[in-house]
Design a protein around this nucleic acid. Structure first.
Lengths: 202, 202
DNA sequence: TGCGTTTTAAATCAAACGTTATAAAATCCA
DNA sequence: TGGATTTTATAACGTTTGATTTAAAACGCA
């Protein structure tokens, strides 16, 4: 045995997330990172490897604590409500995001994934999971009649995924409540149950 | 008078666009940039100022030659058709984007706009213009009956803007035809003319 | 207590960064 | 033809980059 760590790996990883999330990968130097984590550069390299490895771990941490957590909280709720609450939370977060950090997964999708095969797989994998969450909600809703089936469930799930990404990008430069809520309003209309057949009005 | 330029400013700017578009702002060094433009670093500084100024000009060039041009080509066509053609072209571009460069405006919205007031204004301004294009299309369509008015025109325009950004982000890590086309399919359904009142079927 | 091991702090590495002198080359106008 | 002026190419500026070395400090276990 030997000298023990002075820091908690999970805690400093959370600080690393904060730094990468706000500034991105390239604009964050090892010194920025070490300072944000409250460590020396030597400790960072000793504990995590290199800069890319810290980002990799930070992204996993972010996904686990934002997306996985959120899906877990909403999955059991009624389908329409789950989707509505999901978007409501995203919009609320976007509007209160004074540092304009956006979503670290979206940021990663644009900055690191296109030039790094592993990050591409990771990001794509998470997006597939998000799509899967929406798909399950819609399938449940279509089965119990709370969501209309004018559109294929697979397509609706893709539309929701697209709208989610659209909100997160748009909020980064135009974090306006009416804009973001207006964006999703027609999409919720798309989910409404089929209109009951009705007679021609007088 | 004095020695004339050996290069065409527009031409080297187009090469700068290519470089920044593919690698982003931070990951592109002045040397990368100068090499891509076929110039020495001294010439770059002499002609444009600093790195940020080159990016600024490159972004203007990109907006002018991709978005402004596209809107101009579609604005006069029938509204539904214009919107359809717009998305068709975006999806086709996304699927043939082997270098995964995505959209330089979206890239700028995430990398440079959040930490630079001027870029934020520029990007937001272009997004407002895109929204305006969609809004005009929808208003025309709702006026002539080719687009339904179950949803407010302003909301539909926002939804289209969101879908556009969603497609561009999603395509960056998952450039799959069925995914992108499926994403927009329900949104086009949202634009369909109001169903004529009909009798209850037998 | 002292050996083995690991973490820490500080200094350091070569390379790359954005930017700028410097001076030769190339043009216009007198 | 001859300054005046601007672009070029080369080279360098000081700083910062990602990463490592060094040696002291801090523990577990014998």
């Amino acid at each position: 045995m030997a000298r023990p760590r002075e820091f908690d790996e999970e805690k400093v990883l959370e600080l690393a997330v904060e730094q990468f999330w706000e500034r991105g990968y390239e604009a964050t130097s090892i010194r920025d990172l070490a300072q944000a984590m409250g460590l020396t550069t030597a400790s960072v390299y000793n504990a995590f490897g290199d800069k890319r490895a810290v980002y990799r771990r930070a992204l996993d941490f972010y996904v686990e604590h934002s997306f996985v957590d959120r899906v877990g909280r909403f999955e059991s709720r009624p389908s329409r409500e789950a989707i509505g609450a999901f978007f409501g939370e995203i919009i609320a977060r976007s509007l209160s995001d004074t540092k304009r950090k956006g979503c670290m997964l979206v940021n990663s999708a644009l900055e690191v994934a296109p030039h790094d095969e592993e990050f591409q797989r990771v990001v794509a994998g998470v997006l597939v999971q998000v799509e899967g969450f929406f798909l399950r909600c819609i399938q449940r809703g279509q089965a119990d009649g709370s969501i209309g089936n004018r559109q294929a469930a697979a397509d609706l799930a893709r539309t929701l995924l697209g709208a989610l990404l659209g909100v997160r990008v748009l909020a980064r430069t135009r974090p306006e409540k009416e804009l973001l809520e207006g964006l999703v309003r027609p999409i919720f209309a798309l989910l409404e149950p089929d209109a009951p057949k009705q007679l021609e009005p007088a």
